[in-house]
Amino acid sequence: MIDHLRIHVVWASGSLEGARVAEMISRHFDGIGMERDGVAYRVPVRFASAPWLPDSPLPKPVDLSRADHNAVVLLHDDFMDEQASVWDQYVQSTRAAMETRGAADVYIPFCDYGGSAIPASDRERNTQYVYRTGWKGLDQLARDKRLLLHVLVQIRRHLRKLSGDDRDEPLFVSHAKADGDTIAREIVAYVQSPDHDVPLHTFYDAMELNPGEDFKARFDAEISRGTLIAIVSDVYDSRPWCIFELTTAKRHRRPIVLADIGGVRVSRTYPYGANLPRVRLDPTGSAGSWIDPLLVETMSEGLRCDIFQAQAAKVVAADSEVTVMPRPPELFDVIDADLCPRVILYPDPPLGDLEARLVTRAMAALRSDSQLKTLGEYQA
């Protein structure tokens, strides 16, 4: 079977840090999707490190043929630099193989914490590396989250570019001024700090607007192509603009993550903030200790949505009577639609009986031949 996306982690045999980071990447992408009973959709991660031939330190060539798109993550360090010339040949051949596939694949190279020299061929190409020398003050967990965030952002940016959208995707931070503004400001300031080397573009609030601009239209435009973090404070669900932002993101089927900072009591729960990943946020430590993990969860949800939408698009082709949902559907998705679709298609695993019954009854009231199917059921 051809995967939509595979990640290949390349490092020099003997590098314990390279092996540890590769395992960390594999664990993360093993559980990136919708989960039930411990089983989730996974992005396959393959390792290239163990020597392939007796007289060479190089691993087996990266197999790019098993996926529509590949992300090659190079972990360059002193172990690789000790045999620079042969590893440079490996890098050259890998990149040449990627180029024969057009723009399908993406190369994401990292340099180690000591700033070891990068391969000569990459220097000649003026290849930008992620230099981890600036991460020395971070603990291991923070370094791991920063690396994952780089990988996630570059893969999503590459897939978006292939779809014809070369713009930066905004990270829309939805919040209530009354009790979520401090957290939202801290997230935006951290992402925009010169010390944060991940290229993310944030959209915060009306301060981003130009005088005279239609703020509702601008918010809709930013949310419709962005990823939304909802800072769910005690009053968030009771604020009309927060509900507008969350509903707009759902209507455009954009990635959404709920960051729960609730303190005492929620006076009203907005009923259509359901079927979304929720992260419990504890912003009492250093900014990096809670913001980067939140960003990793958010970009992971974004990648999951990207992959599912792409997989579903290949299956349904141009069938206008199929609505593809990147998350389990709910009553909002049925009632809010201009026309009830013949099929609502959503990710596995299937909805439980109670939820499915509610949605199918709502669909049947609008269209007698409507169906609710997971992608697996639709393909079968």
Rank of each mutant, 00 (worst) to 15 (best):
H4M: 12
S13I: 10
G14D: 02
S15P: 02
A19S: 08
R20I: 10
I25S: 09
G31C: 13
I32F: 08
D37I: 06
A50W: 09
L53Y: 11
P57K: 01
P61N: 03
S65F: 05
N70V: 05
M80E: 03
E82C: 15
Y90Q: 04
R95G: 06
A97M: 03
M98C: 04
D105V: 00
I108M: 01
D112Q: 01
D112P: 05
D112K: 03
Y113C: 13
A120F: 13
D122P: 04
R125C: 12
R125K: 05
T127W: 03
V130L: 04
Y131K: 07
T133V: 15
G134K: 11
W135P: 05
D144F: 05
K145L: 13
L149H: 05
H150V: 12
I155N: 11
R156C: 09
H158G: 04
K161L: 13
D168F: 06
S174L: 08
A176Y: 04
A178C: 10
G180F: 07
T182E: 12
I187L: 14
V191Q: 04
V191K: 10
Q192Y: 13
S193Y: 13
P194D: 03
D197A: 14
D197I: 14
E208T: 11
F215N: 10
R218Y: 13
G226N: 04
S238W: 02
F244E: 09
E245H: 02
S267I: 11
Y270W: 11
L276W: 10
L281R: 10
A287E: 07
W290E: 04
I291N: 01
I291T: 03
V296P: 03
M299C: 14
L303M: 01
D306E: 06
V322L: 02
V324M: 03
P326D: 08
E330G: 07
V334Y: 01
D338C: 07
Y346R: 00
R357N: 15
A362Q: 02
A364F: 10
